[in-house]
Design a protein around this nucleic acid. Structure first.
Lengths: 196, 196
DNA sequence: GTCTATAAGAAGATAGAC
DNA sequence: GTCTATCTTCTTATAGAC
């Protein structure tokens, strides 16, 4: 929806674009955006920098594509969490699990959640803020449905939950920890406190 | 201890170094390390880049100085939290408050906590990891004294707590929120769950 | 101590060959 | 579509004047 404006559905082109976005997302997440060069990205798929400028207008444009894909993921999470339509705490737990699976397994998603923002006033920044806001909205909606006293409680819970979840990317070890277990533990930590 | 090796205690020099570290820390925290240039730092104190290379060997050296100052802060927090020697949950709360005050009010501290690590294998990285480990030790020690069942619980609690605390830097608004209140709320969120 | 000037290199981006 | 070659700009860092 609204993502494909140009490049009229060429298949090979789409595959190549996806490959580039994958590489960029992976490097952005691991080295940081500013420290990742176009040469790095091209080398990562065994190509030269020229190819990047055939498929994307600029580095900012490429970064934007990474964000857009992460946003799509956010919407999927939202949809699946709402589909179940059970008790709201259970839905939040489901979304947290999906969120953590994506964060720990998908570099593009991790790049968004952990990445720093570009300077204020730039066009890129406005775009990214919009995307990130819509993404946070997923959790805002889920938490709104919880039986809590005040809006202040809700805001605070959202921040603490996202903070604890996102921080797991720092200490997570693929072969030792399980994203599902981590997410459940974190939600439980808060759940029984807020609604015993 | 072990910090002043060269520059035999010259007073004016120390003041200047401190001013530079302040500026660097502030910019590192707000724009990110890679996006902050030596020109930025010099301009921030109304000077030219040359001055930085008189007081520091390189950008990495300057970054290291920022980390070292943040580490000192960590040790101070640790000392003050241990001095009270009351119930361990209370000590943890005190440390969390100090931590958040520093995180939200001191750019050098924020630069460390939020900053990305340099590439593996570099000398700088080894230095920073050492410093960050010692800093995390502050919380590890405090949490070790809590009456919890398993070591797994302790590790998990430490990660969730630090995640929730550090994430507040993202949404904190100086004129609306109070660091002390935020820290207390976050500790309470976990405290009553783990030891009712 | 701090400045100016500048070297040496890296990064984003483009042009044109293939 | 992709590569090579290159331009321009920006960055770290140094040298030497003051």
């Amino acid at each position: 929806m609204g993502t494909k404006v140009s490049k009229s559905g060429d298949d090979a082109t789409e595959v190549r674009r996806k490959e580039i976005v994958d590489a960029a997302a992976s490097l952005f997440a691991s080295k940081g955006i500013a420290s990742t060069t176009m040469r790095d990205i091209a080398a990562h798929i065994g190509k030269t920098p020229g190819i990047l400028y055939y498929h994307f207008k600029s580095k900012d444009d490429l970064l934007l594509a990474v964000h857009q894909r992460a946003e799509d993921w956010g919407e999927e999470i939202f949809a699946s969490a709402n589909k179940t339509d059970r008790d709201p705490w259970h839905n939040l737990e489901e979304a947290s699990i999906s969120h953590l699976q994506a964060l720990l397994g998908r570099p593009d998603y991790a790049a968004i959640v952990g990445g720093r923002m570009p300077p204020k006033g730039t066009e890129l920044r406005r775009n990214l803020v919009n995307i990130r806001d819509r993404w946070e909205q997923v959790f805002r909606d889920l938490i709104d449905k919880l039986p809590l006293k005040s809006d202040e409680d809700k805001k605070f819970l959202r921040m603490a939950l996202l903070g604890a979840l996102n921080h797991s990317a720092v200490w997570y070890r693929p072969d030792k920890d399980d994203p599902d277990v981590i997410a459940k533990q974190i939600v439980d930590l808060i759940r029984y406190r807020m609604s015993p």
